[in-house]
Design a protein around this nucleic acid. Structure first.
Length: 556
RNA sequence: GCGCCCGUAGCUCAGCCUGGAUUAGAGCAUCAGGGUCCUAACCUGAGGGUCGUAGGUUCAAAUCCUAUCGGGCGCGCCA
């Protein structure tokens, strides 16, 4: 639609259609038309009054059949599109393309590797990792829909001094019985305890050194911690319905470290400073990056270097994404800069997709070290129970069906609750909001979908393919919204902003619910055309939800 | 101290990249309505905002620029 108007304008004014692409806008008030063209820029160019220009254009433009009319209103030229033509075109496209509606082949032949979720073993699955998991998963879905090949990697934090500390603490006040009951909770408990005792700083370093040197006994304990942690994480991934192509960890890149250190030395990037090896990035305004500690053990940056290089070797990616919290921004800038200094041309294809933090009610960061954190598993479980309660308040359901439906509802609440926010924004973690099923929430979207499906179910054989004689305002609004979906998907991927799809879905659902309340579908004279609208809306809503990682429910 | 991010209704947030038309949008909360009718996890209406503050650019600023105040995060042996 937009293209048509652009080309009409371009033809008349003797310019390229793209000239006006960012100028043409959609008025907030639909009485001002479906598209509006402000004439201010032309005013300067033509040295004429914008009001006059709008009037002239309104008179002189040759309109194709898709445009019903255009009229000048002040300095604006307002276009009213032919509703029937719009509906026909959009609805046919949706019903033809079905679950592919909104997709594209933009990314064909391109491989994108994404590092996401990445929880630390032996620690509770924190809220930051939840964000990384949910946002990363949505970006993957959207990317695939755009034709990219996506590889999801869960890179566990399973190496480094903190784990030395936890092992040391476990040896001192660990309780095998408690460990067996709930490994992560127990390890977390002793970790917090150890963190309050300064002597564990040194003990942890010593212990990590032994681990790194391959001390059999210590390695066995570490392996046990890792295995139990993964088991716990799997529960959460299952709840969220997220899976990975590769699950690996920092420990697996340890073996590449000596070569990296050597390479940095060869390229004269390494400097000794206070007994440690660093890369000085001050001239790039990125401070300095620590590569090797004075005790000879290495740090995350070193392992990240090895990791990136190995990944490029293996996947020859077009883009490498890291979905990690914003507090690590500097680290990634340093990482990418060092890769660039090492001469890797693909360094420019690495990107940190940062997300803001969830803060507590006082606006402070949650810290596992200070024992201040939420246990995601508990919160997810609570959401699940609440979903069951809500279902049973409306009608009896039990067994497998209840569990499955509750799971999808809880998942929708959690995923949508996160994705509706702008990624980079810090947000106050509000448990009430997480557990809410009404208003601007995931369950609202599911409910809308179920309602639409219910109509379609009852309509059965109504096969009419005609669009009605004339769309009402609400119908037109809905159809215009449906037509926008492909553009929203494209922008959501190019700016890695799943919230655009979340916001779109919500607006679509709202628009549909307004339509639902004011238009009778079944049994009305316009039944055939309205059914088409319902069918198309449910399809687009389903597509949008699936991009977010939310399954649609036929019944609710 | 330096760097990055953020300040929009009582609360939680969209909108800002790519500046536009009189009434700056949602949700929650508050108040008032809606079921003999396709699922009321819904819909309709009301109250509530100097878009942190001050300048600047522009015909036009929540949106761009600068300053300032407030909050968050980061800044070598943690990840």
């Amino acid at each position: 639609m937009k293209e048509i108007i652009l080309s009409v304008l371009a033809k008349k004014l003797g310019k390229d259609p793209s000239t006006f692409e960012n100028i043409l806008e959609v008025p907030q008030d639909s009485s001002h038309g479906d598209f509006a063209f402000p004439c201010f820029l032309l005013a300067r160019e033509l040295k004429k009054n914008p009001v006059q220009i709008a009037q002239d254009l309104a008179r002189e433009l040759n309109l194709p059949k898709e445009i019903e009319r255009c009229e000048a209103k002040g300095p604006y030229l307002n276009f009213f599109i032919n509703r029937n033509s719009l509906a026909e075109k959009t609805l046919n496209k949706i019903l033809k393309e079905k679950e592919r509606y909104g997709s594209s082949t933009l990314g064909r032949g391109k491989t994108v590797v994404i590092d996401m979720s990445s929880p630390n073993i032996a620690k509770p699955f924190g809220i930051g990792h939840l964000r990384s998991t949910i946002i990363g998963n949505a970006i993957v879905n959207i990317g695939k829909f755009q034709g990219y090949k996506l590889i999801k990697i869960n890179y566990l934090g399973d190496w480094g001094t903190p784990f030395g500390k936890i092992i040391a603490a476990y040896q001192e006040f660990g309780d095998p019985k408690k460990f067996k009951e709930n490994a992560i909770n127990h390890l977390y408990e002793i970790y917090v305890k150890a963190s309050q005792d300064k002597s564990f700083e040194e003990k942890g370093r010593q212990m990590f050194k032994r681990l790194a040197q391959g001390d059999k006994k210590i390695v066995a304990i570490w392996k046990k911690f890792r295995k139990e942690s993964l088991k716990e994480f799997d529960k959460i991934y299952k709840l969220l319905d997220v899976s990975f192509d590769v699950i690996t960890g920092e420990s697996e890149y340890e073996k590449y470290i000596p070569a990296i250190v050597e390479e940095l030395k060869e390229k004269s990037l390494l400097k000794e400073d206070q007994g440690a090896q660093i890369v000085d990035l001050k001239e790039h305004e990125l401070n300095v990056a620590l590569i090797q500690k004075s005790d000879g053990t290495t740090l995350y940056t070193t392992r990240d270097l090895a990791l990136a290089i190995q990944r490029y070797k293996k996947y020859k990616f077009t883009t490498l994404l890291y979905e990690v919290g914003s507090e690590q921004k500097l680290n990634f800038q340093q990482l990418f800069k060092i890769l660039e200094l090492m001469g890797f041309s693909w360094a420019k294809d690495c990107k940190h997709i940062s997300h803001g933090l969830y803060l507590d009610q006082d606006g402070k960061k949650f810290s596992t070290r200070k024992g201040k954190t939420f246990f995601m598993e508990e919160i997810l479980q609570e959401t699940l129970d609440l979903a069951k309660e809500e279902i049973n308040r409306r009608g009896k359901l039990s067994g497998k069906e209840l569990n499955e439906r509750a799971l999808i509802i809880a998942r929708a609440a959690i995923i949508y609750g996160d994705l509706k926010n702008y990624r980079e924004q810090n947000a106050v973690f509000d448990i009430e909001r997480f557990l809410s099923f009404e208003g601007d929430t995931g369950p609202y979207l599911l409910y809308t979908y179920a309602r639409a499906k219910s109509i379609l179910q009852k309509a059965k054989k109504s096969k009419g393919n005609k669009t009605g004689p004339k769309l009402t305002d609400k119908e037109k609004q809905l159809v215009i919204h449906l037509a926008k979906f492909p553009e929203v998907v494209a922008t959501a991927y190019s700016s890695f902003a799943p919230n655009l799809i979340a916001n779109y879905s919500y607006q679509l659902a709202q628009s549909f619910n307004e339509f639902y309340h004011s238009h009778k579908v079944l049994g009305s004279p316009e039944e055939a055309s309205r059914l088409q609208i319902v069918r198309a809306t449910s399809q687009v809503l389903k597509n949008a939800l699936s991009l977010l990682g939310i399954a649609a429910l036929e019944k609710m």
